[in-house]
Design a protein around this nucleic acid. Structure first.
Lengths: 340, 340
DNA sequence: TGTCAACACGAAAACGTTTTCGTAGTGTCC
DNA sequence: GGACACTACGAAAACGTTTTCGTGTTGACA
């Protein structure tokens, strides 16, 4: 087991001082051509690499950004991470990922650990539990310490920081408008309970689309799923006694459960009933029928979040720059779960 | 913007020395009850948290483990990460994730960066390009520096380190044996080219199962997909002129393309033809028909890898302990793409 | 009163860098 | 020959910890 090479070792070996070695390697003009060559050659030969930890301590920055997401086993979040990584690596940052598992406590702990030097800033999508509890002390604390924070997807309005979101309401509106355009009249909604912000916003888009088209709201066509694990049964029950010609689901899974339920009822998608969902997922492309969706552009979202964060990190002057909220456009992707 | 609290600041504020503060906070018996209380109260009041970077430098360990995977937008890898994270966090480690994007160069760069102090050890699944190139200098270098390395899934046999793999060959055999048991005779194989080790091993399992059941090998029933992006077309072409009553696919995607192709030919799965695949994915559960699979227990795999790594990290004496290869058992999950 | 142990604390080194400042040695110029 | 400016390097501080060792004060005891 080779010991790691340090400046001190090089210095001793070459009989110069540590400072000389450091300067030589950084091409300082203070060092004569001769010794510079000698030191560089030696360093190269023995494959010297500076110790990042020491640099972090010295520079008081780690060149890494911390990402905290509710869960990683979720295609949408992986696309976001992918976008973050791409931009971060381009700019010489690396990325630490932690999952909160939708637990408030784990979110807090992860932030505290990463905030203690490991990370220069955060990109975060808050846990469901945090949204419920409305306890944001860990976020404000980090901000007060001067660490930039960018929130995405599930953001907290009250927190003053950069944000990247999609136009959930508008996206939902687009979806429902599409259903209306193809002639659907009785449009159901499968959403989540309201404390999940996206559920709330998408519900709002649904309502707006109806009202703009002078369609009367029928509350009985709205389902707000509470327990994800029970959603398949809930949805199947919900759909069993309603007359709908379309369903708008706030995510991929709900859409697929809906399609399954319809099939079991002997209904054909899209002939008898159209289904549209919010998602970026793999499933929607591969499912039969493939799903018409409102896409969320996760990778773009991650990329923008990373750009915002790095801008704040590199611009010391930017402290008093106002915070930005970037809205990622959603788009309709027509596939085979809606009739034409 | 509050400055971060350090030992030095506390010391100045309370008019004691840095060492006293450090000792007090760590409950050293050297410090009198009085001052200890005072210091602890102060630290708590102003929410002192030690700087991890300084600790890393001092202790020459970072308490973080680096994970390098070929791609993150892949359900299997996220389950593995999930398992790694769970175990790592339990033991007080955190996890840095980098993706190689299946590029050799990016794999090398990521390892070099993380190896310079950021990380105590590695968990790695090698990039496709690395398997092709057979250039493993970055792996041996890291090992020579005394950093433990655990490889999983796509492992390199020649490298001497801990490994976690699944019994690809046996798993494939199980799959094919199941097809034989339900009465299939003409069993096709959709695999990848051989330099991807899993493709090779699973192919071998296929061959073994056939030979053990005295079924003659028909080379024309084997497809080795080269270009992933073209796989849908390749598979559809491949299946168009063969008479099979079953297909074993080495991954989820190939299986689904096969099912689609069969449907287009007017064949029913599972009535006319059975399909079985290797995978842990979401798709297989939700697809219609849902897929009979050989599962890979990704989370278990990650957990074991993390355990192996941490064992090496915490046991200085373990240096000469022999390396282990843990084999994760695969299991057959019967669903609706195979007849009963 | 002098000796010694116990107690409570501080100084300093160390981890691996970068950077500021100081300074020997050399050469130039009048 | 003296003043001065370069040149090329080294010493030391700093980043925030932990830990080893040294030391001043106190009290007990003969």
């Amino acid at each position: 087991m080779k010991k790691r090479l340090t400046l001190k070792l090089i210095a001793k070996e070459l009989d110069v001082s540590v400072s000389t070695v450091s300067k030589a390697l950084r091409d300082s003009a203070e060092i004569s051509e001769d010794t510079r060559q000698k030191i560089k050659a030696f360093a190269k030969l023995y494959n010297y690499k500076p110790n990042n930890i020491a640099l972090s301590l010295k520079n008081r920055k780690s060149k890494t950004i911390g990402v905290i997401i509710p869960e990683i086993v979720h295609h949408y979040f992986t696309t976001v991470i992918s976008g973050i990584e791409k931009v971060a690596n381009e700019k010489g940052y690396h990325v630490i990922i932690c999952t909160s598992n939708n637990s408030f406590d784990k979110e807090v702990i992860n932030m505290e650990i990463l905030a203690n030097g490991s990370t220069d800033g955060f990109i975060l999508s808050v846990a469901k539990e945090t949204q419920q509890k409305r306890d944001y002390h860990h976020l404000t604390e980090v901000i007060e310490q001067g660490m930039p924070l960018v929130m995405f997807d599930r953001v907290i309005e009250e927190i003053n920081c950069d944000k990247v979101i999609i136009d959930d309401t508008l996206g939902a509106k687009k979806a429902v408008q599409h259903l209306i355009n193809i002639g659907c009249k009785n449009i159901g909604l499968i959403s989540t309970i309201d404390y999940v912000s996206v559920g709330k916003l998408r519900t709002q888009g649904y309502l707006e689309a109806l009202s703009e088209n002078n369609i009367e709201l029928n509350e009985s066509l709205i389902l707000k799923v509470d327990d994800f694990d029970q959603s398949e049964i809930e949805i199947s029950k919900f759909l069993s006694d309603k007359a709908m010609d379309a369903v708008f689901a706030v995510n991929e899974h709900f859409a697929i459960y809906a399609i399954k339920a319809f099939k079991e009822q002997g209904l054909d998608v899209p002939k008898d009933v159209s289904v549209i969902a919010f998602t970026d997922g793999e499933l929607s492309k591969r499912f039969i029928p493939s799903l018409t969706t409102i896409n969320q552009h996760g990778e773009e979202m991650g990329a923008q979040a990373a750009r915002l964060l790095i801008r704040k990190l590199e611009n010391d002057e930017s402290e008093d720059e106002p915070f930005e909220t970037i809205i990622i456009e959603t788009g309709l992707v027509e596939r085979n779960s809606t009739k034409r």
